[in-house]
Simulated assay, not measured.
Amino acid sequence: MKTLGYYNGKYGELEEMTVPMNDRVCWFGDGVYDAGPARNYKIFAIDEHVDRFFNSAGLLDIQVPVTKEELKEILQEMVNKMDTGNLFVYYQVTRGTGIRNHVFTEGPGNLWITLRPAEISDGEKPIKLITTEDTRFLHCNIKTLNLIPSCMASEKARKAGCQEAVFYRPGGRVTECAHSNVHIIRDGKLVTAPADNLILPGIARAHLIRMCERLGIPVSETPYTLEDLFSAQEVIVTSSSNLCLHADEIDGRPVGGKNRELLEKLRTALLEEFYEATKEE
């Protein structure tokens, strides 16, 4: 199959799938999600993604209708049905189905899964960024379906000819991007925003930190500002879809390009980790 969808046990091509109008996602965006790449029919970092998925659901008191192991089995079974093994694997759970009511719907949630062909970027080509004020709520550590501010920021970036938007809070503290984490290299050290309630603790972010530790590169999980961003040796953007990108322009101003050796060491090491974990048997 070229694409594949799943809804509470029902399968089909994405354009053929339908969901109940009373699914709470339609009324409130009431749910959480997770996603990641697959290559050669192997889902990368599946345990980490599923753990985060269940953690997000738990923080909102949403009952996932399957166990972690059952979810992983369903995902792998669906991946095996696809025409290509290089995919974007997305899954979400919504609180349930019922007449619109702000009070929670009781019982297990609804499980959605979508698969489509996708490739991981090698990160060689630099990207362009814009900055925009972070007007989101204070639960950014939960991977919820309420993504309007991120959608607005992503569209703003597109109109500016850029690939991502960097959020900042009052006082200039950089948090993350619309759908990525952002980090800087400063004085040969990786500086990344702390995993508090203002950012989503990205799986790719965790892999970047671990790779730095493996390579002997110091890491500081501390807040940094727009001023730090513009003066950084390098600006790195990570996500599950793009493991290690770098920026050469923000708001039309040139950035980075001052520690290419360290950047390249990280980029190649992260790609090699991904290729090794998803190599063809």
Rank of each mutant, 00 (worst) to 15 (best):
Y41M: 03
E164D: 13
L147W: 09
F88H: 14
D228Q: 13
L226W: 06
W27K: 08
L208D: 05
N141A: 01
C177G: 15
P65A: 07
L115C: 09
C162Y: 12
G58N: 15
S240M: 02
E280F: 10
K156G: 00
V191M: 10
T97C: 15
T135S: 11
G161M: 03
D23W: 04
D23P: 00
P20S: 11
A45S: 08
L145Y: 04
G9D: 05
V166E: 05
P254Y: 15
C177R: 09
P194H: 14
E15W: 12
N242Q: 12
T131H: 04
Y33T: 06
V255L: 11
E272Y: 14
V103C: 12
E234C: 03
K2Q: 13
T114S: 08
N86M: 05
V32P: 01
V166Q: 04
W27F: 15
W112V: 10
A195V: 09
W112Y: 15
K2T: 03
S220I: 05
P149G: 08
A277P: 00
N80P: 00
I99M: 15
E73I: 01
Q63H: 11
E264S: 05
E70L: 01
A57K: 03
A232C: 08
T94D: 10
A118I: 00
L243C: 04
P218D: 14
Y90D: 08
D248C: 08
L215D: 10
N8K: 05
L71Q: 01
D228S: 09
N55V: 11
T175Y: 12
R136N: 05
T192Y: 07
L115E: 04
V93K: 05
S150V: 02
I127Y: 08
H102L: 02
S154D: 12
H183D: 08
F53Q: 06
K258C: 03
T105H: 13
Q233T: 03
G171L: 04
P126V: 07
V174A: 15
G188K: 09
R158M: 05
C212M: 12
R52H: 10
E272W: 08
K265S: 10
Y168H: 15
Q76C: 01
N110L: 03
Q233E: 15
L59Y: 05
F88V: 08
D187A: 11
R52G: 04
I148C: 06
L87C: 04
H183T: 06
R116H: 11
F28E: 01
A57V: 03
N141S: 10
Q63D: 15
H183W: 08
K279S: 07
Y33W: 13
V255Q: 15
I250G: 04
P170D: 10
T268R: 15
T132V: 14
M152T: 13
Y168N: 09
F274E: 10
P126D: 14
L14Q: 12
V182L: 10
R173W: 07
F44A: 10
S150K: 13
L245P: 00
R100I: 02
R169C: 01
